[in-house]
Design a protein around this nucleic acid. Structure first.
Lengths: 332, 332
DNA sequence: CTGAAAGCGCTTACAG
DNA sequence: CTGAAAGCGCTTACAG
């Protein structure tokens, strides 16, 4: 029924090993033989069995990506699907396939990763959102299993990673606002125990400093989560500060929270900047300015790094910094 | 290095075939032998190689899901990621893995599906958004390759599918509005050549009829796409109809388009209903009522159908209708 | 440049 | 209840 390499060999009058070499386009096969074999392949409509190939050469040509199972997050944020898209687009160029799994928590993630690696279903793993003491990363390192992390891992050496430069991102946004004449710029972020929060705050501070503007603690609010509530809480404090002409936030949801509160009390004079460039922000009225983090590119480069390592072993580049883009939507 | 079934056999003092039978928990192996083998497995930390197993029994335990590569869509709509989540959650229960790929267009999708099936990388395929004359479906049918489609396929017989009941969805929304006292209800949808559009319009019509309300063509607008522009165009027409107390739309983006236009001209007296329950709608001010289509459940049942077929061959159930949920957010 | 043979790590009739 | 053997469909040293 199913046509195998044997059938092709018989048809072409060569040995199976020769057919195999033609498939991998070996240089040691003459052009005539190749032509003969290829004809037979076409005639019989032969398709190599990927599984058999995998078993023989110990390569699955597939990547595994672990997704956090945070409904709320994936609900409002296209980040994950864009990352997945980027990886897939890169991978398919190199004939790699991508498996995904949603992990309920970090423990579940580790369980999954063990499954995937133990059973040799994948050649490499992509991890998202590394924690400070990441168990999965520790495991993968110990096993010497190829992986790449999207987001800053703890120890940079010897691990492949790709991330945005979050310091630079808010630095540039702040700078842009300053250049537009703003001098009293607020900042609203989430928990600064997270690297992302810390970095975005850092960029804001550095820009103010660079332009000789004093940091005013009253203009700053550090909430807990990247959500609307944080925005609302901040808005209640900031609403009294009439001198504030612009507010930078670290997430569109935070900005939306502020905006909704301001809408209610009738304030529409402040420049509000979101982050992550989500549809939620883009479809506010008026649309929110935001910072695009290029999630698809993050995925693309993650694919590039891991496949690079799998194919070449020796790697020059061990990480990529993906640029962010300030999207101005509202001209006041 | 890598421990195989041979090593376990040696350790336990049995034949490799016996170890294999213990792995699959064969009934023909005595409990003592099982215990002995399991101990050896534990001692050596043996993990069966999934690829070898796949080759031997011709089952990959993996599903392939084809995603349309529509950036804009996945950007604003969590549909895809939710479907993927649902499939994955179901699949993992049965130790199935899921591969995904983004297809640029239908032609690309077919190419991918051929790759996956030709190379025997997957046991079954999940297709999203079937077209009327779907080439991929035709191919899969011809090949007799197991698949399931999310969304109504053309020929229902013998193909597995899962979908919402879109007629019922708008019927219930319309009914709800009528029960709240609305008598002049508008409807704004996209191109009625698509089944989804047609069905949602149908549900609206039927509800009106059921409650003895005449259909008024002036209250109805059929745009082109499921987007903001359609909403704006509709709003320009409907804005003059003061008697309209509510408007049902077939997408949150359409509703948002209407809302933004109404905001500008200062109308906030009409009940506006979105569809798909996206974050965009939820974070409008005030938040939009919408219809949740339960994308995760669509995925879950798709997984259930395809895995059911793969495991049992004979299938009682060939489709599932996933209920929708009317989410009321704004109480006027 | 090509072939025969062994091997990748499992499973599964077949035999007992 | 268990084992020896063949097989799944490829690849790749080894030999020539």
């Amino acid at each position: 029924m199913k046509v195998t390499i044997r059938d092709v060999a018989k048809e072409a009058g060569v040995a199976p090993s020769t057919v195999s070499r033609v498939l991998s386009n070996s240089e040691r096969i003459s052009e005539e033989t190749k032509a003969k074999v290829r004809e037979a392949i076409k005639k019989l409509n032969f398709k190599p069995n990927a599984i058999a190939r995998s078993l023989a050469n110990n390569k699955t040509q597939t990547l595994g990506i672990m997704l956090p199972n945070e409904i709320e997050n994936s609900f409002s944020n296209p980040f994950f699907i864009q990352v997945m898209q980027g990886i897939s687009l890169y991978a398919s160029q190199y004939h790699y396939y991508v498996m995904y799994a949603f992990a309920k928590d970090k423990k579940d993630e580790l369980k999954y990763v063990k499954e995937l690696t133990d059973n040799r279903r994948v050649d490499g793993i992509v991890i998202l959102k590394a924690e400070v003491q990441d168990k999965t990363i520790a495991y993968l390192q110990e096993m010497k299993f190829p992986f790449v992390v999207i987001g800053h891992p703890e120890k940079l050496d010897e691990t492949l990673w790709v991330d945005n430069d979050n310091i630079d991102a808010t630095y540039r946004v702040t700078e842009e606002l300053i250049k537009c004449g703003h001098r009293t710029i607020g900042f609203v972020g989430a928990n600064t125990e997270w690297a992302v929060s810390k970095d975005r705050y850092e960029g804001y501070k550095r820009a103010l400093q660079a332009y000789g503007i004093d940091l005013n603690e009253r203009y700053i609010y550090h909430g807990k989560e990247f959500n609307e509530l944080t925005g609302e809480e901040a808005a209640k404090r900031l609403v009294e500060l009439d001198e504030l002409t612009a507010i930078i936030t670290t997430d569109d949801l935070i900005a939306v929270g502020i905006k909704h509160y301001f809408d209610e009390v009738g304030i529409d004079s402040k420049e509000l900047i979101g982050f992550n460039n989500t549809a939620i922000g883009a479809y506010q009225n008026p649309p929110l300015s935001s910072v695009d983090i290029n999630a698809e590119k993050l995925g693309w480069y993650a694919g590039k790094l891991i496949i690079g390592q799998l194919e070449e072993k020796r790697q020059e580049q061990t990480h990529y910094i993906v640029e962010t883009e300030f999207i101005k939507r509202k001209s006041k």
